[in-house]
Design a binder for these strands. Structure first.
Lengths: 249, 249
DNA sequence: ATAATTTTTGCAGCTTTCTGCTTATTTGTA
DNA sequence: TACAAATAAGCAGAAAGCTGCAAAAATTAT
């Protein structure tokens, strides 16, 4: 295996898993750990990754999720993102909220996709920013530290002034009776306006959040056009939603 | 076998397998490795493939390997940030641009500082966001992929509508005759408005950029209130600026 | 057709790169 | 604090690369 080839493999692994161990790589590629270490050294000098004791971390990991908490249920979220991506076509105007599921969506966007994404979520914007062909429009306003998303009248007014093709929302709780509910007042205001300003609303959530409830009402279930979870669309948990006329992926 | 024919064969192999080894090709075509190497050299000069130690890789390989660059002269920038931090007091309203030096400033902010920071630079915002006591106000607009900063009339109008206590600018080039100059039209517009909307302008730069010139004019040197570099304020390079009435840290 | 000229090719000798190993040092953790 | 793992530095053998040169092949001119 050529050196560059090896480094490309390492980079691929880092971007995929957000972290790699020297020992694992050494076993995978069948070269000594010294070689791996030298590769990591070199890659980190070129800023392709962040070298740490024992291996390396993806750059996005430290920039986007500097808290370095592992993302909960990341595999499910990656799967959700994969499904959701298929809904986006070239030239679309897309509104997006924040949350870890949306980040996975951003990472899963195919490089060849041309589209415009509007968001106030700093982590989401950071992720969209790395895409080669996407136009990113940032919603201004005061940043909510907890949600890492811009809020306030500026953002609201901006969203109000446009009509997007799609709206992707990562949601915190959903059930058929109460619809989407959440726990952050500012974020709820935004989500409501986003829903109002989009042709089509797509909700992304892990199945764990199905049939749960949060204090603040966002919108009726009927407003949702598509629901994406990590489950098969035929899964029993999803049937009530299908029957309610929501398209399930 | 003719040279052209041979090179066509090599290209075919590269496109097919994404990689080729000099030794393999030499055996396949029955020419010396030197010849192969010369072919690869030539093909790589025409950008048809990427020559590496031991063979060559298809161009598709290197696309993966394009991410961020390492931060140049990070130690100097950390020092600059340390000095600059002392200018900020509790309760201040601070405008900031983007750039790696500003990021270092954001990281160097003391946790006990209470202040409001306004910026359109996504990396800077990401850094401010992690601070416990700082209010972050995000300038909305279309994101410039190269500068990673929001631009356009929205951001301009927002800045125009306020008067900040301080404005921190990471700058690309400065000299006494031409003042601050830069190379990105959109960014220059923003910087000019930021300068106009601040009581005090603080420029951060590594000494390497002193007495250099870029194509686009930002403002006169006289507009600068404080200049921060990694050098001692008594350093000869800085004396002309001191004499011009600029406070040097 | 033949000679002159240019290009291409292979080779020898020398330099550089790569990789695994050893040893000394640093780092993280129990 | 001490112990195990990880790292850095230096070294050596092997592989790959480079340079100049001369022979061979191809091209052009006469």
């Amino acid at each position: 295996m050529l050196k560059r080839e090896r480094q490309a493999y390492i980079l691929h692994q880092v971007n995929l898993h957000n972290k790699v161990l020297s020992t694992t790589l050494s076993n995978d590629i069948a070269v000594s750990e010294d070689t791996i270490r030298r590769d990591l050294q070199e890659l980190s000098e070129f800023g392709k990754l962040i070298k740490v004791h024992g291996g390396a971390l993806s750059h996005s990991f430290s920039h986007i999720a500097q808290t370095s908490e592992p993302i909960y249920a990341q595999q499910q979220k990656k799967l959700i993102a994969q499904k959701a991506v298929s809904l986006i076509s070239n030239g679309m105007f897309v509104l997006s909220g924040g949350g870890t599921t949306i980040i996975e969506l951003a990472k899963a966007l195919p490089p060849a996709l041309f589209a415009s994404f509007i968001s106030g979520s700093i982590p989401a914007i950071s992720a969209y920013m790395h895409h080669p062909n996407i136009d990113v429009i940032v919603l201004g306003g005061k940043l909510s530290k907890t949600a890492k998303i811009t809020t306030g009248p500026d953002a609201m007014a901006r969203i109000k002034s446009l009509k997007a093709d799609l709206c992707f929302l990562g949601i915190n709780a959903i059930n058929l009776e109460h619809g989407i509910t959440d726990n952050d007042w500012d974020v709820v205001q935004l989500k409501q306006q986003m829903i109002a300003s989009s042709q089509k609303v797509i909700c992304l959530t892990i199945s764990e959040k199905l049939n749960t409830l949060q204090p603040i009402h966002v919108c009726e279930a009927a407003k949702i056009d598509v629901l994406v979870t990590e489950l098969e669309p035929t899964h029993p948990l999803l049937q009530p939603y299908v029957e309610a006329g929501i398209k399930v992926l």
